[in-house]
Design a protein around this nucleic acid. Structure first.
Length: 353
DNA sequence: CGGATTTGACCGAA
DNA sequence: TTCGGTCAAATCCG
């Protein structure tokens, strides 16, 4: 843990240092009124660096309140919100109550940023342990990417009023801003039942629907740098395995990706159109994936999608700055109701199309 | 065939 | 009037 803290500290310094250098470059560019494209690229990198740094800070600041991280770095910002008293009426079919239904959100709101670092992450938003049903998508003014609206699968069956909004960050397409509102009141079962280690089978939907409410069951993921573990309050620590993440591909235009400082290796290897549906969201590209044993990699469902050569690996490992250097290795992560699930079955279908 | 997603339309808040 | 959130019909998918 100590090592991880040092590493994290070092990474933080690196990120901030890099951000500073980029800012200087940008300043010079602006002085010389160079091409806007170049400036945009630098701004993108700058934002990315600061995002990561802030993520680290948020992470550090909330130690004890930990994050589940499967293939992403997550920072969380809780925002105050007043209770949405009329929420239970909002989805009444009675059109005469539409004025009530359309009330703007007043549910307690939680925001977090989730970083994904595989190319597939660009296609889909991160998922958590709950079953979410997408009910809308909207272009947001000033945002490059649309916002997707999800509500709990069990809304009708169990009256669960949890909803969430997912939007890709403008500054860094690897970051999803997730806003969760309401609490899950739905009952899931068997979340903690260890799943078969074979990840050849992908049944994320089924897994998703059987997770217990997180307010009742606190999970902690521990990334030991060797493997990931999930710690539950009542079951202790168990080795967690992750189903391969399966979701439809949603290509991101290379231009956009480029402008957001995606490492060359990822662009070359992954952005040429053939995304691998079962690829995984590694905890971090550099710090965790490559410390996994082959078996563990298999457990992570990435065996057939991992870079096939050492050069590929090196390419990714040495990728500049950005996707993430976040060494969240020895951090403890816990789940609350809006957290990402360790199983993280990125099965939300095509997100941004 | 049932459940999930897509997407245009609708509506209220700002 | 604009924008964001939701509805619901159409469509997709297993």
């Amino acid at each position: 843990m100590e090592k991880a803290c040092n590493w994290e500290h070092q990474t933080l310094i690196n990120e901030l240092t890099q951000g500073r250098q980029l800012a200087i470059q940008l300043k010079n560019q602006l002085d010389k009124t160079k091409s806007p494209e170049s400036s945009e690229f630098l701004v993108g990198k700058l934002l990315s660096s600061y995002d990561k740094a802030l993520s680290h800070l948020n992470l550090s600041a909330s130690m004890g309140e930990t994050f589940p991280v499967i293939g992403m770095l997550e920072s969380r910002h809780f925002t105050a919100g007043s209770p949405r008293s009329e929420d239970s009426n909002r989805y009444s079919k009675d059109q005469s109550h539409r004025s009530v239904l359309k009330k703007r959100k007043i549910l307690p709101e939680r925001r977090k940023q989730v970083r994904v670092c595989s190319e597939t992450g660009l296609g889909c938003p991160p998922d958590d342990s709950y079953g979410w049903r997408k009910y809308g998508q909207k272009e947001i003014l000033g945002a490059k990417y649309p916002r997707a609206y999800y509500r709990c699968t069990h809304r009708h069956a169990q009256g669960c009023l949890a909803i969430k909004q997912v939007q890709r960050s403008d500054a860094d397409p690897f970051i999803f801003d997730i806003t969760c509102m309401g609490r899950h009141t739905c009952i899931h079962v068997s979340h903690l039942i260890p799943k078969p280690t074979s990840l050849e089978k992908e049944e994320p939907k089924q897994n998703k629907d059987h997770y217990p409410p997180q307010q009742e069951q606190e999970l902690q993921i521990q990334s030991s740098g060797i493997g990931l573990k999930v710690e539950t309050d009542d079951l202790g620590i168990r080795e967690e395995t992750f189903p391969s993440f399966s979701f439809p591909n949603t290509p991101v235009e290379p231009e956009k990706v480029k402008s957001h400082s995606v490492p060359e290796s990822m662009k070359e290897n992954n952005f040429k159109g053939s995304y691998s549906p079962s690829f995984v969201y590694p905890i971090t590209c550099e710090s965790n994936i490559f410390s996994l044993s082959p078996r563990q990699m298999n457990n992570f469902g990435m065996s057939h999608n991992m870079p096939s050569s050492e050069s590929d690996l090196a390419g990714i490992i040495s990728a500049p700055t950005s996707v993430t250097n976040s060494p969240i290795g020895d951090l403890d992560f816990s789940l609350d109701e809006v957290n990402i699930d360790p199983n993280f079955p990125f099965d939300i279908p095509e997100y941004f199309s």
